[in-house]
């Protein structure tokens, strides 16, 4: 029998893994790999464009899962959600769907070098598609920095809706999500009680991640704390409400999650009306100088 080296075996494994869609999609390179499958960059030869092909492992259950994700995405037409172009089976029986190829970086790689306010604006744009999905009865359930892409032109996209919960969804068992960003009710496997506030918890985790290496701010810490409250009733009721609080912080207004002391109110007011304060201080100094010289 032919004797294959380890290198031969590894090379043949790569051949097997390559998606074969019977001609339409020509695989270019593997982009990502995870428990729920592999994503390839591919040439769509029919329409002459590059797409991302998500391919699931063998198995009918996986195929159903992929179809479900494709259907979820197809029903969510939003600039912050990657559009699906096509779905089906590869020649070897694996399920796939083709989606827009996003050129950019994952959030955890994209924010290096950005200021706190730039990060907060990105965060607000993450909230938009999440809120939109909630309005369609869809809960993402796996919000984390790795599932957010920041495109070349600053577009922000929420990815990986494979474990989304549909309001019309069937029975589900087991723990779904990523431990670090998972709401307590998800960690407990109480999938019936998972709602949009569970995604608010995940958004809180993302905000915390974005602020990890930034100067500490009590209002922002309070926003994170509120979003990640153990009791869902104590969290923001919606992603929009959380985004609005972040927006208030950016505008120098009081946030709902934090009660300021008078000193902080004054400090925030001064920070917000910096020009006015500087003019006033300038006026006081000038006045003092005038009085001083007149007094001599």
């Amino acid at each position: 029998m032919l004797e294959l080296s380890d290198r031969n075996v590894a090379a043949l494994r790569r051949v097997l893994e390559q998606p074969d869609s019977n001609g339409r999609y020509h695989p270019v390179r593997e982009i990502a790999r995870g428990g729920m499958g592999v994503v390839w960059e591919a040439d769509d030869r029919e329409l002459g464009r590059r797409v991302a092909l998500k391919i699931l492992p063998f198995g009918a259950a996986s195929a159903d899962w992929l179809c479900r994700e494709a259907r979820v995405l197809a029903g969510l037409e939003h600039p912050g959600i990657v559009p699906v172009h096509d779905a089906g089976l590869l020649a070897d029986g694996r399920a796939f769907y083709a989606m827009k190829l996003v050129q950019g970086n994952r959030l955890d790689q994209a924010v290096a070098g950005l200021t706190r306010n730039q990060r907060l604006r990105i965060f607000q744009r993450i909230c938009e598609p999440v809120e939109f999905a909630h309005s369609r009865g869809i809960i993402h359930r796996d919000l984390k920095p790795e599932n957010v892409m920041v495109g070349e032109f600053g577009e922000v996209l929420v990815m990986d809706w494979g474990v989304a919960k549909l309001s019309s969804g069937g029975p589900e068992t087991g723990i779904i999500g990523t431990p670090q960003y998972m709401a307590p009710e998800q960690a407990a496997g109480a999938n019936d009680t998972v709602d949009q506030r569970s995604d608010v918890y995940g958004l809180g985790g993302i905000l915390q991640f974005l602020l990890a290496d930034q100067p500490s701010s009590r209002p922002l810490q309070a926003i994170c704390k509120k979003a990640m409250a153990q009791d869902p009733r104590e969290r923001y009721a919606t992603a929009a409400a959380m985004s609005a609080d972040v927006g208030k912080f950016l505008e120098g207004e009081p946030v709902s999650a934090y009660r300021e002391n008078p000193f902080e109110v004054a400090w925030r007011w001064m920070a917000r009306h910096r020009t006015l304060v500087l003019l006033f201080l300038g006026y006081v100094v000038m006045r003092a100088l005038v009085l001083y010289f007149l007094g001599r």
Partner: peptide, 13 residues
């Protein structure tokens, strides 16, 4: 069993 082994051969699971 086929699906499990195929997953293994295809290197995904």
């Amino acid at each position: 069993e086929f699906e499990k082994e195929a997953q293994l051969l295809l290197g995904i699971c």
